[in-house]
């Protein structure tokens, strides 16, 4: 299992379209991936789960992954968040 903490930096935070991008990306990997804030831990492949996090700009989220492609999956998700979901 590997984990990484990262700050949401795009202006709108983890809003609907950003969340959809994240969930679709997570869905491409075989590993079990979770994304969590201080209060809530959600399955990164679940759109309702990720939206429930309601993670705004500057929120620190923790990504955890376990499975055959855990390293790749975390890299890809961290990349997406670092690149502000292709927004801004």
């Amino acid at each position: 299992m590997i984990e990484k903490e990262i700050t949401i930096t795009n202006k709108l935070g983890l809003h609907a379209r950003a969340a959809a991008k994240l969930v679709n990306l997570a869905g491409k990997f075989h590993s079990h991936i979770t994304i969590s804030t201080e209060q809530i831990c959600a399955d990164a492949k679940s759109i309702l789960g990720v939206l429930t996090l309601a993670a705004g700009k500057d929120t620190v989220v923790k990504i955890e992954a376990e499975g055959p492609d855990e390293k790749k999956s975390i890299e890809a998700i961290v990349n997406l968040i670092q690149n502000k979901f292709g927004e801004d």
Partner: peptide, 10 residues
Amino acid sequence: MPDSQEKVTY
């Protein structure tokens, strides 16, 4: 596995 980890809030 992340699933078995319980993040319990008190």
